[in-house]
Every structure is written in C-alpha cells, then in structure tokens.
C-alpha cells in the first residue's frame, strides 16, 4: 500500500505583518510546512504504521520547495520519502495548476491507494486543491476527515466530521482525503527525526506537460467590517448582568 501526503511549503502566518490598512504582508515570513499539513502527515504516518504502507510526501511549488531545509522539515515529520517538483514556473502557482501537477506526480508514483491533504493552506486557504486533484485523478474526495483506519475487508474506514456529528464511510478504491485541522495532534519532531530526515530518499521530478487553464483573479477585496452595536451591559449584580447578556444574545438570534 502506498499513501501519498500532499503538503505545501508556505509562509508562516505567525510572521505576517498586518499593515494599518489591513493588508497582510508575508514577504518577511519564514517558510515552513503549511500549518495544517502536519496533521495530514501524522494521520498518514499512523495509518502507514498500522498497515505497513509506505508514506510518500509530495510537494510542488517554486524552487524553495526543493531546498534542503524544506526537505528535512517535511521528512522529519514522519514521511518515508519525498517527491518534489521545485520549478520556477510553479512559483506562486494557484490551485488548478498545483492540483494538475500533483495529479501527474501521483500517477507517476504509481499504485497509490490514498492521497491525504491538509485542511487548507495557511496562505491562500482556498480549500480547492484536494477537490481539483481528486477530479484529475477521477477519485472520490472526502473532506473534514477526522480518522482513517483499515476496515476488516481490507478497504478503508473513514470518519468525517459533519455539522455537529460524524459520518463513517467505507472506501474500497483509491481516494483523496482532506484531513480536518484538528484530526490529530501532530508529533513534534525530535532530534532523531531531524537527523534521520537528511538521510531519507528524495526524488526530484519535473513539471512536465501540464496544460491548465487557470481562472484569472481579476479583483480582491477585504470584507467590510461589520457595524458593531456597541451595547454595554453594566450593573453590580453580575448574575443579573449575565442573565441580561444571555437574553440579549437570544433576542439577536446568536444563541
């Protein structure tokens, strides 16, 4: 069994600078494995350990994706090996292109049973890549996945979070799973993992022929700030004020 985890090497949003006009500047942010992707890697590692599968990391992007730091950072999180497509042509690539290149690589790796992705990347957060990737592969896509295990018949049993509850599905063919951000707590790579990362195999692949018509972004706008009511509840009797607060929230349909 081969499990692929698609991950992104992206700017860390914690280093973002927010200008007075609300514009987010990520130019000075340090890159790292995109915030939610370690959750997908951890989910994959646990499944791979339980099933004896190989866990292959796959990342496509600009040249920075292929740096030694980027490779070690990903591999130290528990992947067995990596396939990277680091190409200037993919610098700043958007969902359609990224997903097409990922799909080509999944086919190239061959015999892949499962592709895991994170919940969304921390920079753009469009949540599109898993869907487009599944479309290219012609595989089913399950999102908000909180658990995945081997079913008794050899297929996979996938738990999804739906609304306030969960749904359990059995999948018998290859699939793309987008793992919920809180599915598991990813391990913290220790020194052994970090030292071991430099010794794991990495294959560099090329973009190849990918014909993609990427929809053009023709405008971007921040959401208008909602008008606040600015109501202040005061009083010496805290229980009474709390009751008043609950009543007000009910009246506004918040509760």
């Amino acid at each position: 069994m081969t499990i692929v985890v698609a991950y992104k090497w992206a700017a860390n949003p914690q280093d973002a600078q927010v200008g007075a006009d609300g514009a987010v500047d990520l130019s000075r942010a340090k890159p790292g494995v995109s915030e939610y992707d370690p959750v997908a890697i951890e989910t994959g590692r646990r499944l791979a350990d339980a099933t004896g599968a190989e866990l292959v990391g796959l990342s496509v992007g600009g040249p920075q994706v292929g740096t030694s730091m980027a490779r070690k950072a990903a591999l130290s999180r528990g992947l067995d090996r990596l396939v990277v497509v680091a190409d200037e042509a993919l610098d700043g690539a958007r969902a359609a292109t990224t997903a097409a290149v990922l799909a080509a690589q999944v086919r190239e790796i061959g015999d892949v049973d499962l592709v895991l992705t994170g919940d969304g990347s921390v920079d753009e957060g469009a949540h599109l890549v898993p869907a487009v990737l599944a479309g290219h592969l012609g595989w089913p896509l399950l999102v908000d996945v909180t658990a995945v295990e081997r079913a008794a018949d050899g297929g996979l049993r996938v738990t999804r979070s739906v609304g306030a509850g969960t749904q359990v599905l059995e999948v018998d063919g290859p699939a793309v799973l987008s793992v919920a951000a809180d599915a598991v707590v990813p391990r913290v790579p220790g020194m052994k993992d970090i030292l071991g990362a430099g010794k794991k195999p990495v294959a560099e692949a090329t973009v190849g022929q990918v014909a993609v018509s990427e929809p053009a972004v023709v405008g971007r706008k921040r959401p208008a700030l909602a008008q606040r009511k600015g109501r202040l509840l005061t009083g010496a009797d805290t229980a009474a004020v709390a009751a008043e607060l609950v009543a007000a929230l009910r009246a506004d349909g918040v509760l």
Partner: peptide, 17 residues
C-alpha cells in the same frame, strides 16, 4: 545548522503547546 534550526522549531512548538 539546518538541524539546529529545525530542533529549535520543535522546541518552540513544545513551548507553545
């Protein structure tokens, strides 16, 4: 080194949690 940098990232992770 890169290894030291990654280790410090792990330390920050643990400390944050």
């Amino acid at each position: 080194t890169e290894e030291q940098e990654l280790l410090l990232a792990s330390v920050r992770d643990v400390m944050e949690r």
